[in-house]
Amino acid sequence: MTERTVWTILILAMIAMAFSRTMFDPSQSAGREYVKQVDGEWVKADLIDRNAGIAEVSYDRTAGLWIAAVFTLCIFSFMYRDNPFYKVAESTVVGVSAAYYMVVGFWSTLVPNLFAKLMPGVIQQWAMPGLSPEIEPTGIYYIVPLILGIMLLMRLVPSMSWISLWPLAFIIGTTAGLRMIAYLEADFLSQIENSFVPLIVFTETGIDYWQSFQNTFMIVSILSCLVYFFFSIEHKGAVAGVSKFGIWILMMTFGAMFGMTVMGRIALLAIRLEFLFREWMNIRPY
């Protein structure tokens, strides 16, 4: 009961603050989006444009700004715990994005890559005016993906759902095949080649000890990590020692990566906060 009261007050206070900020922002830019017209297109206007008097408030963009801000706050509320605000934001994001991807999938994949190849005439009239209505000589091959696609949809018919296994198998099989070559080439051979370094680096003045150590250390690390991922031998005796060294190398790598990624995440957070403070509420420390 008390908790609820506290939260109600807090939320009301936040709403009040947001509105008051919007109302009484001296620069009149908090909680609003300004636009100007350039070559018949509406684009975002900045302070200079406003001072020049060519900008005006865009109500739909302002609504967008508020939605973005409110959803950002809703998602942040998850830090406290799961709550209806989060659920609303979550469901919206999921629903909108799922629908969005469906539409994108239809317009950017199905239409240009399948229908446009198979029946360019129809598509030209209907969706893609720039398209040549002549069917390409290879266009007819696109009947194969169409058939596979239809087979995949057979899943919806319970009695014929087994048909969908075939295209699925085709996808998995071709992917595996294609990937294997790419993998062998990019990860396998080129990676091996890249680790061809002289273990002892001779220079004109003698041996470059530091570089030699670096190279040797790198090669030893690579080989010991390789031993860790060698599955045929139980980690016992000497193998255990080598793989342990490999583990340490992995751990060091992980540590470095952890740090790097955390930095990246903090940057993401900063961007979000920047959006809230600057773009939405126009709060600037300077």
Partner: peptide, 20 residues
Amino acid sequence: YYVTDEQFGYVAAVSGSMVR
């Protein structure tokens, strides 16, 4: 079940359902 292709939409949904 399918959630969404959107990376963070997906994460939001999964972590939401995990908490629930």
